[in-house]
């Protein structure tokens, strides 16, 4: 295990149970780090920026796009912040480590890339006035302090993209005031989203540029607490129905029983937190992805909203073979509701 992947393994915080014991000192307790508090009220634009006292944080954007060629695409742009120690220090002494992932997925292709950087001297970071998040030449930048209108770019050897996103709805706070519980034993995070982006721009792929339009969803989340000891991974769904309603649901897998939760978002953008267990998801079919068995067709239900849908991945091979690897890709929804969305699955070793 390299320093890089050790870092990243740690960076992907929630998979605490997957961390080898030798890293336990760093991975399993939140010593010295701030702990999400139920009493905290989110405060913008400050909370768009980093929270260096928390161990882990992310700016996570996914979008379902349609090309001028009629084909479906998905893109991902994620910036992770992972603190080796709480707080910030200047120059090379900064304990903040930044990691970014970018991907473009089509029905039969999946490109991804990764960048790593340390904080403290400007190679990577997030600023709030105006909002700007970057690593190297990958950037998510707003025209002002809000997240209403942002430009997004990522560049790698074989692909790049440049997109403009405009929000046509309000921010959504998950859980209670953005305090999102992650296990029965109380692990939690601060979590809000902007799920209402209209997207347009250009993907540059090996076969040439593609003009695209579609819908995007930004997740912001920070915490210091790992998964509960017995949790092995998670399946996370962000679904956008043609009705204008949206559903965020996740399933934390555990030997002692899965934990599910989520948020129902009305067409107007009003958030209704789901009680644990209200959302259910069940794998219908698995695909062989890089030698792993990974569910790429699901049945999801939220009976209280009359949701019973089948979820099908656009490209079952949407594997992020980054330092810390996981499955992340666009999906389509059919059944009681139809629409599109994104699926992320971790902990399938």
């Amino acid at each position: 295990m390299s320093v890089k992947s050790a870092l990243v393994t740690m960076a992907v915080f929630w998979a605490g149970a997957a961390l080898p014991q030798s890293y336990a000192g760093l991975g399993s307790s939140a010593e010295g780090f701030a702990i999400p508090q139920q009493s905290t009220r989110l405060n913008f634009p400050a909370d768009h920026g980093p929270h260096p006292d928390f161990r882990i944080e992310w700016w996570y954007l996914t979008a379902n796009l349609e090309g001028s060629d009629g084909a479906s695409y998905g893109i991902q742009w994620t910036l992770f912040r992972s603190a080796l120690a709480p707080g910030e220090a200047g120059g090379w002494q900064s304990p903040q480590v930044w990691m970014a992932h970018a991907a473009v997925t089509s029905q039969d292709q999946h490109f991804f890339a990764e960048r790593l950087a340390r904080g403290g001297f400007g190679q990577a970071g997030v600023e709030t006035a105006p909002f700007d998040a970057w690593v190297d030449d990958w950037q998510m930048r707003s025209v002002d302090e809000t997240l209403e209108q942002i430009s997004l770019s990522a560049n790698d050897l074989t692909f790049s993209y440049a997109l403009n996103l405009t929000a046509d709805g309000p921010l959504v706070l998950h859980g209670r005031h953005g305090y999102s519980v992650k296990s029965a034993s109380g692990q939690a995070s601060h979590y809000y989203s902007q799920p209402h982006y209209q997207v347009s721009g250009t993907l540059s792929l090996p076969d040439g540029p593609v003009e695209v339009t579609g819908h995007g969803w930004l997740d912001r989340e920070w915490s210091s607490q790992p998964l509960a000891e017995d949790q092995s991974g998670w399946d996370w769904f962000s679904l956008r129905f043609d009705s204008g309603e949206k559903l965020m649901g996740f399933l934390l897998r555990s030997k002692t029983g899965d934990f599910t939760s989520g948020t129902w978002i009305t067409a107007e953008g009003k958030a209704e937190p789901l009680r644990p267990g209200a959302f259910q998801a069940e794998a219908l079919a698995v695909s062989d992805v890089q030698g792993r068995n990974i569910p790429t067709r699901w049945h999801a239900s939220l009976p209280e909203k009359g949701v019973s849908v089948e979820i099908q991945s656009l490209n079952p091979q949407s594997w992020m073979g980054t330092s810390f690897s996981y499955w992340e890709g666009p999906v389509s929804v059919s059944g009681s509701h139809s629409g599109k969305g994104y699926l992320e699955m971790t902990g399938y070793e």
Binding site: V3, K4, L26
Partner: peptide
Amino acid sequence: LQHPQAQGLALAAEADSAPALDALL
């Protein structure tokens, strides 16, 4: 985080049963 041979260094550190991230702290 950038050096091309960081991998080798980390392997050596691991063989020393050192916590993998202590080189950074």
